[in-house]
Design a protein around this nucleic acid. Sequence first.
DNA 1: TTTCGTAATGTTGGATACAATTTTATGATC
DNA 2: GATCATAAAATTGTATCCAACATTACGAAA
Lengths: 225, 225
Amino acid sequence: MRDGQQRGAQAGEIAARLRDEIVSGAIEGGARLGQDALAERFGVSRMPVREALRLLEAQGLVDVPPNRSAIVARLSRDDLLDIFDMRASAEPLALGLALPHLTNAQIDRAAGIQRDIEAAPLDRFGDLNAEFHRTLHAPCGRPRLLAHIESLNALADRYLRLAIGTMDHQGPSDAEHRELLEACRARDEASARAVLTAHIVRARDTLAAAFENRTPQSGKPGKGT
Amino acid sequence: MRDGQQRGAQAGEIAARLRDEIVSGAIEGGARLGQDALAERFGVSRMPVREALRLLEAQGLVDVPPNRSAIVARLSRDDLLDIFDMRASAEPLALGLALPHLTNAQIDRAAGIQRDIEAAPLDRFGDLNAEFHRTLHAPCGRPRLLAHIESLNALADRYLRLAIGTMDHQGPSDAEHRELLEACRARDEASARAVLTAHIVRARDTLAAAFENRTPQSGKPGKGT
DNA sequence: TTTCGTAATGTTGGATACAATTTTATGATC
DNA sequence: GATCATAAAATTGTATCCAACATTACGAAA
């Protein structure tokens, strides 16, 4: 970690790596993130670690209570609904704004990503799926909205990984993605928004059901690394 | 500043005071926020100042480029549209979710706030208006959604203050608030959402028009304190 | 005069050191 | 054995110090 990066980038780098581990489930909800342990692990002082934790807090992935160790945000059914309803509200907005500026080349690119999704292993679904939607949303030209959606996707991925493979999510998702591409090709905003909303709402309900039947994760703290 | 606060609260306190000054326009967009100057002004070291700047950055009120001084986010028409379209998407969602849990007492409280709005001086409109909407949204029980809306309102207030008084915003706004209260009393979700959406979209368009005719703020840096 | 390169100044990022708070461990008392 | 008070250890918050980067000032050359 020490070398090979610009001066003000340590916090961002640490945040990115922690984010990956939290989203992937390598670090479970409720785990303690001690500043000292993290600093030693990444070979830096506690200062960039603190900034990284603040970044993750702003994104909603960790909770940083005053004078106490940071805690990885716990998963809950209410939180899942909170996140996915926000997605169902924000993403169709971005798509609708992007549609008039969307080029056929961009739609083709999204279609290519969808082919990758159907061919690639399941553990890459999260990243590819985000890339698919990002391609369709980007032309909206709204930096704040896009950042908001990215942030929500990171939160949503934690729930997705819990359920992926356990339920029949992939089949319907692929079909909906193709429907979405068709609506985009036709530049049919109402249809595209409706398909996307239904896509997210169905994912929400599928994941909520899967979340209830999950193998209960160890509720105890679990010393963090 | 030194006394009268808990140990881990300096950053939050500083952030709150800076936020007020930015939102109220006391510090203009583009102003430099030097860590040293802020630390001296608040009578603390640069460390809590840095955290405060990160908080404000996460909220989108300042830009913190690496190795350079923080800058108060500049206002722009595109940014205004970005913010208000997100509000028009998020707030009706919160209202719709809150409506089934909304009590008559809460609606009465909102009506009381609306009476205050119509009586109070214009410079209190921002706070009271936020309180009015907060009262109606709170029962939705979605912490992330509510925090998102609060954050957007702080951003929106900057544009509101630019235009307040210059255009006929107050009249329509009061009427729309009363319409909204009626729809809530009738527990008519579709109507309430429609009224709120129109309320925000009209505000967006009014403020966008006012923004074009604004007295051009000094585009130069302006040493910030 | 303009432009480019270099030095001086100012400002931020990170490391170390210390103070305050929380947490855990210990022991006394019921 | 359980509970509460007290003390030790661990952990965070803040201050101070140094190094790296950026900006500005200055001067030389075209």
